[in-house]
Computed example of a mutant assay.
Amino acid sequence: MNKVLITADRVIAGPADQVTVDGAVLVESGVIASIGTAAELDASVDTQVPRLRCPGATVMPGMMDCHVHLAFDAGSDPISAVATADPGELSTAMVERAQQLLAAGVTTVRDLGDRDGLTVALRSSIDSGATVGPRIVAATAPLTPHGGHCGFLGGEVTTDDNIRAQIARNAAAGADVIKVMASGGALTPNGPRMWEAQFTPRQLRLIVEEAARYSLGVAAHAHGTETIGHCVAAGVRTIEHCSWRTAKGIVYDPAITRRIVDNDISVCRCVSGDWQLFLEQMGPERGKAMVEVIQEMREAGVRFIAGTDAGVPGARFGDYVGMLEFFASLGFENGEIVDMATVNPAHALGLSDTGVLAPGMRADLIIIDGNPLIELGALRRIRHIFTAGRPVTK
């Protein structure tokens, strides 16, 4: 279908306050050709152009998941599942996981760590039309010290020369972004603890500078409060997790947050659909502290971007909206949450052709039953999905 006129009760063009009641979107050759009221476009568009009429529905930009691991299986031991998997079987599984995300209305994903460049290969297959799936922004192998967090993915570095060489390899492999494991993480046994720094401030600056040589931004996995500060000073583009941990518990630093806002750094909190169980496991005191910190960051003006960490234990690929519901539980307004899933990620990832519906933009859009600005659960009721103007069969 090369051309189609879509009409619905409303069109959320993006940001979320840009709504056309009884709206329409004309899609042609993979891009948005026009947007306006249904009456205007129905009258001006040739009657031979197919109409997709969606009463009771909302047309909006496709959603984005800014933190996934397509090579992980969301099981209890994803490390073994990745490290020992046959490349062919793993590639097939990654296609299925990507399609689960697409079926949930996610038309763009940022994969922040895989092995052997498999995500780049999948990206190429999707871009060529050979495989159906969401648009992929790929990091390839994340940088980490020897024995560090996720070292099994092949990005271990020790010296400055190692750092330069690994970034060069990632860029040559087709990376869209450089991922650095700036602090430890819970996934890697016997690795540094979550709050412990894995790189010095100087090394982080080197990573950002080297990435810039290839016109690539840096996404920093950073749990520790001190490490978050180092990442901000180094000039990373996004901070993943940003959980403000120390050996003594959560310690929030408003001064660092001010620099996050001033430097236009986006934060991906990496919340999966099983967040209620996660809060329960944290316990009342730590869970309360985590929630309060997110609320303080919101009040300070931090730009949040949606990410599920899909693939790590318990983070399922098909439950994207569950993550959004976490923010609703904290008092975020529905419009804020829709922007967190659309406009904000496009800005953070440097994708100037998506995130909103406007003439000339890539036709990544979803059509859902109901109005997500009133009922967030409407995002689960997807009627139609278009990626680069191609309708997706669910």
Rank of each mutant, 00 (worst) to 15 (best):
N2A: 10
N344D: 12
I368T: 09
H241N: 10
Y320I: 11
L102Y: 03
V267T: 04
G335S: 12
A139N: 05
L112A: 11
T159D: 08
V218Y: 00
A310V: 08
G283M: 10
G273F: 07
E280P: 06
A182P: 00
A171Q: 03
P55T: 10
F317D: 08
S76V: 12
T37P: 00
R135E: 09
C150H: 11
V11K: 03
E296Y: 15
D9C: 06
P87A: 13
L143H: 03
A38Y: 01
A98P: 00
A171E: 02
I136E: 07
N263Y: 14
T342I: 08
V45H: 06
D9Y: 05
I6M: 07
V49Y: 02
S352F: 09
L5C: 03
T108N: 07
G331F: 07
R51N: 04
P50D: 11
F72M: 14
L204D: 01
A74F: 03
E240T: 06
I305F: 07
G355R: 05
I239R: 04
T354H: 03
P87D: 13
G314A: 15
I385F: 02
R97G: 03
G322H: 09
R110N: 11
A363F: 01
H146D: 15
V293H: 11
H146C: 14
E96P: 00
F152Y: 14
D17L: 10
G56H: 08
E240S: 08
E156P: 00
T159V: 05
A24S: 02
R164M: 10
V157E: 01
P254G: 13
A289E: 14
V177I: 13
H241F: 07
E325M: 14
A234T: 03
A363W: 01
D42C: 13
D116N: 14
T225P: 01
C54D: 07
A219N: 10
L90K: 06
L324A: 06
V261D: 11
G56V: 04
G318W: 10
A182G: 02
Y214N: 08
T131F: 06
D339I: 06
T92A: 15
N190M: 14
A328Y: 06
M1K: 11
V312K: 12
A165H: 11
